[in-house]
Structures are given as structure tokens and as C-alpha cells.
Amino acid sequence: MMGGKTPFAWAARAFRVPGEERRSLVQIAKATAAAVIAWIVATAVLRLPQPFLAPYAAVFLVQATVYRSLRGWAQQVGAVSVGVLLAAGAGQLIPSVTVALGLVIFVGLLIGSWRGFGDSGVWVGITGMLLISYGNATEPVLLADRLLETALGAAIGAVLNAVILPPLHGERLRAATSRLASAIADVLDRTAELVRGGEPTDGLDDRMEDVRSLVAEAEDAIGWTREGRYLNLRGRRESREEPLANLVSLWHPLAQLIDAVSEAARSEQPFRHPGEHARGVVGDLLEALAEAVRSGDPDKLDRCRELLGEIDHLLVTPTDEVTTSIGLGAMALPARRLVQRLRAD
């Protein structure tokens, strides 16, 4: 959670900046409060004996999203119920505690592997194991207590997570947008250098791999944001994911553009590589695209459209320099797609 930061630096950033550290701190505080409240209710109000499962369940139900908390509550209560029934059956039918323990663990983990239980599936075997080992499996009242305290703790954790500062992931979305825009713009600038100079620039392949990685991170951020907004009382205030999704859509035409430029630069056949003037126009277009991506300003695309028009003119009007260059056409198509997808936002 803290990565390479010291605990003091991490805590200072959590209080100073409304980012991931602060969200983690809020979730930790909520999990702690849920556990304490569950313990107080189970001991002082319901007077349940040894209600250790109540705070345990409460902590685990303060999830990263409200949806996961509510889904986890249903899964956990279902898993614990099956574990209680499994322990009760084994306690009544198998005299040996050792044999009953082994059977309950095996069958419980087997049943818990059903995907409907999700991450809570392990609770089937664990609940059965605890009840058998504590000698509660033959006492119906204690079995009911275990089920009640689990449902109580899980409910308190889920409700606190949904009502008190329900988690959102807007800062993750904004950070991913900034990083991906910067990486794409940098690749476009370096590609412009390659087009003009005709010589490969250092590190372009590595930077494309960086963009690929950032696209995967962006898709993950979009997924978290959408899930975080679902059933969330603060969901309407969440950041929009459309700008980031728009940047993600640039990946394929960008990769096609890099392939076309690299192939033209490596080719020994003159008709595949545009002449100096055409390369200058393509370079200007890529730099204009980089500026539009970096700034997020749709007005910057006016210059891109002008340059696309000039490229179209070069393609249909033979000159001494350009004779319907295959290389220029190969570069123009993905460049046009980049402009179109940026306009889609």
C-alpha cells in the first residue's frame, strides 16, 4: 500500500493530497470503525459469547467499491451459512473430531470453490473448521450465534462503506489520463522526428511499449471507475471516463502509424518513402496531433485537418517529388484515424 514511501511521508501525503493515499486512509478508518461497532453490538447489545466473527467480517466488507461490499455481504453470509450447516452435519454424524475436521475442511473448500461465492468461498471451509475445532458443532445455539455475528459484522461493514464517504476512483482516472496523454504525445513527437530525418530515433520501441502498458492501466482505471460509481451515493460527482476511453482508442492507429513510418524509413525503394516536402507535412501533422493530445483542446485539431487536406492533395496530384507514394498513403491512413478518434470526444 505504501510502496517505497516511509509511513510518515505516506501519512503526510494522505492528509495533504486528495489522492490514492487519502482514499486508502479513509478505507482503513472505516474498516476499523466497522470492526469496533460490530464488536460492541455483538457483545454489549446482543451479548453473544465469543463473537470473534463479527469484527472479522466487518473488516473484510469495507471493500474498494460499494458494489463489492454489497455483493460481498451476500457471498459471505451464504458461505458462512453453508459452513455452519456443514459443521452441524459433521458434528452430529461423525464422533471423531479429527475425522470431522478433515472432512469439513475438504468438503468446505471444495464447495467454496464455486465461483458464485467469489473471494468469500474460503469461508465455507474456515467456518466449518472453527466450529468443529472449538467444539461448537453440536450446539445449535452456538451455531446460530456464529451465523448471526457474521451477518451482523458483514452488514455493518457494507453499510458503513456505502454511507460514509463511499469510495470513488476519480483520481486514478485523472492520473491515468494524464500519463497516457503525455506518453502518446511523446511518441508522436518522436515519430515526427523520424519522418523528417528518415533515421530511427532512439527509444521509440521502448516508448511504444510504455504506451501499451499505460493503455492497459487506463482500461483498468475505467473499469474501477465504472464499478465504483455503481450503487454509489456520490457517483454523480465522479469524473467522466470518456476522455480516457478516447485516448485508449488511439492505440491501434498509433501502432499502425509507427509501423508505416518505420517501414518507409527502412525501405531502400525510393517510391516507398515520401519526398522531403511530403515528410515535412507529415511531421507537422504529427506534431499538431501531439499538441492536441497533450492539451486535450479540440480546437487544436483545426490545424490537423488542414494538414490532412494538404496530404490528400499530395496523394492525388503527382509532382516531381511525390508520385502517389505508397509510403505517404500508408502514413496518411492511420494519421487520419487518429484525428477522427480525437474528434469523437
Rank of each mutant, 00 (worst) to 15 (best):
L244N: 05
A335M: 11
E171G: 00
H252E: 15
R196Y: 08
L214G: 01
I156H: 06
G78T: 12
L204C: 07
S325C: 13
R16V: 01
G121R: 12
L93R: 02
V41P: 09
R305K: 13
Q76S: 12
L328Y: 06
R279N: 06
V187M: 04
E217R: 10
S325D: 11
G78M: 10
L301A: 05
D297P: 04
G228N: 00
S182D: 13
D189F: 09
K30Q: 13
A278D: 03
G118A: 01
L214Q: 15
G4V: 08
V104P: 11
L180A: 03
H252Q: 12
D299W: 02
S81H: 02
A12R: 15
A290M: 06
L338D: 12
D145F: 14
V122A: 14
G157W: 04
G135C: 11
W73E: 07
E287Q: 11
A35M: 12
V187F: 07
E321V: 10
S249G: 10
L53D: 09
L188V: 09
R234M: 04
L231V: 11
R23S: 07
R179F: 01
F15V: 07
V282P: 06
D119Q: 12
M2T: 06
S69Y: 00
L148Y: 05
R179E: 14
A332T: 00
G72Q: 09
A183E: 08
L148S: 13
A255V: 13
I311W: 05
A88H: 04
S262V: 13
Q50F: 15
R272H: 14
D186C: 03
V62S: 08
Q50G: 08
L204A: 07
V124H: 13
D302C: 00
